[in-house]
Design a protein around this nucleic acid. Structure first.
Lengths: 335, 335
DNA sequence: CTGTTAGCGCCTTCAG
DNA sequence: CTGAAGGCGCTAACAG
């Protein structure tokens, strides 16, 4: 392995001189600098970031922990985080937690043991207090898609309650009164908030919430199928269906089609997140836009400010917007 | 920061004893071991993997370089790689190359400078010779979705030619003769191979390939739209369309619907990859299964064999299979 | 402006 | 079985 020492030897200087030119210090004689640069190039030398990190206890890399890798949703977030950080010449180390407390903790400790300069977390299981303590005792933390108490400045969230509210309000405006709801897992705060928004819209319109128009799933497409199947079995009538995310909406859509339910005339469906495929399902999906890419970018910029002294303007809370497509119709039964 | 030295102090032993119990050496007195373990727990000590890595020049982590993060396709691959490696207690460092030569090289060098024990590459721009030299001079490499000459044992690929062949053959069997083709970028070998398969199937059936039934895109959904638009403009008749991947097929599907083309009666469409959403588009997409998750898993297992002396059985070439859904119909014009 | 000298935190011979 | 000492590759005072 070619080390800084060998480069120094080759260039006929001391290793600290090499170190200086490597780190762009200006206080180096031009002639020596040339010699060093030549040697570096000839030997195809690359400094070991491990050794450098040990010596400086910095690493120019930020650790990212996500719950999932395989969904386009988190993929978009990762992409924007990576792009933003790379532009600032920071590296990204990505790990996965699977919403499992043990795995999430392990991942965080791994990232810390790797001397990451900061962490960006998108996690479900870790308690607020744990996240706080990491931020205080170890490295700066930023959190996407969740509001961690005490870390409001570092949390980047969508106003989910408002999003849930918008969906149902929209349907009510279209004349629907019997609106079913397939929720994500309520222990996740985003799912709970969206559901709260739904109830607020109902209440505002003077419609009573009916448990027989409710199903709780896990955000997977098969939960959309199972949910709609369950609701149909319960037998309560409904002309519209709100789903906690687009995956479940897609599942419900496909299931409805399979059952011969006419869409959207017999059943209006709205989703949440506006994932890329929302406009390819049939009918194209009316949904709520979730600017996850921007949120990831913002989390990255927050870190750049905090740790690498950049000065980007920061926005913590994002607002949802309806995206109207073809999966909703006016309620034919409305007067 | 709590170091191994402080733990030793606390436990009343030397730091080498601590190091031994940390690394699971059996040659440690049971009493001392207990003391050390207690100290470790009390102080909530975690060894610095950076320091460890510097001392051992290993890191128990493998670097993964992908071209894209935001597509479900590569997401699935990453997920399976991560899962396989995590089960073996290895960590994964993910980076992105965007199919750009410069970025890919930089990413590889970053991963190497991080002392990764091995690399898993899914890249487009890097030359074979470069990949070879990394494998020989630096760390073992494994490659997904591309056959690197000299590294056949480490390459994990789908038989793309066969896949392309299957698509077109299937359509021909359905009575189609005028079959349009929207390809991925031909400089990518998978796109070229799929296209070759298409031509082989045509030839076998005695159908001449017509340039006016061909469009080259970049694998993005908008290329599906643009491609179909272009083909329609050219004016040549066709009753079926093969797309180089499901994204483009989705784009084409949506565009056809927008144009009022009846699917599948007026136009049969087949995709490639069988991404999750293929069964939610409308009509549900007939496509070719691409076992990308298994391929990622296999690449990971290869690394586990090579670097961490496991003994998994390895399969390098995977076979494509047709997945029949509703986007294809028999050619009504056929006799 | 340049070179010398300690470490960064850990592992690993080598004696004891 | 345990402890002492050297070194992994690099940076950062500190002298010169």
């Amino acid at each position: 392995m070619t080390t800084i020492y060998k480069v120094a030897e080759r260039a006929g200087v001391s290793l600290s001189t090499v170190s200086r030119v490597l780190n762009g210090r200006k206080t180096v004689n031009e002639a020596l600098r040339k010699k060093v640069e030549a040697a570096v190039k000839e030997m195809n030398y690359r400094p070991s970031s491990v050794a450098r990190s040990l010596a400086t206890s910095r690493s120019d890399s930020v650790g990212v922990l996500v719950s999932e890798l395989a969904t386009p949703f988190f993929g978009e977030m990762l992409q924007s985080i990576e792009t933003t950080l790379r532009e600032a010449n920071k590296h990204v180390i990505i790990t996965v937690g699977h919403n499992d407390l043990q795995q999430e903790k392990e991942a965080v400790e791994f990232l810390i043991s790797r001397n990451c300069d900061a962490l960006i977390l998108q996690v479900g299981a870790l308690e607020d207090s744990y996240i706080q303590s990491i931020n205080e005792e170890k490295v700066p933390v930023s959190v996407v898609n969740r509001n961690v108490s005490g870390l409001e400045q570092a949390s980047f969230i969508l106003n989910n309650e408002q999003g849930g509210y918008l969906c149902t309000k929209f349907l009510i405006e279209q004349g629907h009164r019997d609106i079913a709801y397939i929720s994500g897992p309520l222990e996740k705060c985003d799912a709970a908030e969206r559901f709260n928004g739904h109830k607020r819209a109902l209440e505002e319109a003077g419609i009573a919430f009916s448990p027989s128009l409710y199903f709780e799933g896990c955000y997977r497409e098969e939960d959309g199928e199972a949910g709609l199947a369950h609701l149909l079995e319960l037998g309560a009538k409904f002309s519209a269906l709100v789903c906690g995310n687009d995956w479940m909406a897609s599942g419900a859509l496909s299931f409805a089609r399979k059952k011969g339910i006419a869409l959207p005339s017999e059943l209006s469906i709205v989703g949440f997140d506006n994932i890329v495929f929302a406009r390819h399902v049939f009918p194209t999906l009316t949904t709520v836009n979730h600017p996850i890419a921007e949120m990831g970018e913002m989390a990255a910029k927050y870190i750049l400010n905090k740790v690498y002294s950049e000065e980007n303007t920061i926005q913590n809370v994002f607002l949802p917007e309806m995206v109207l497509r073809d999966s909703c119709a006016k309620n034919p039964g409305a007067k």
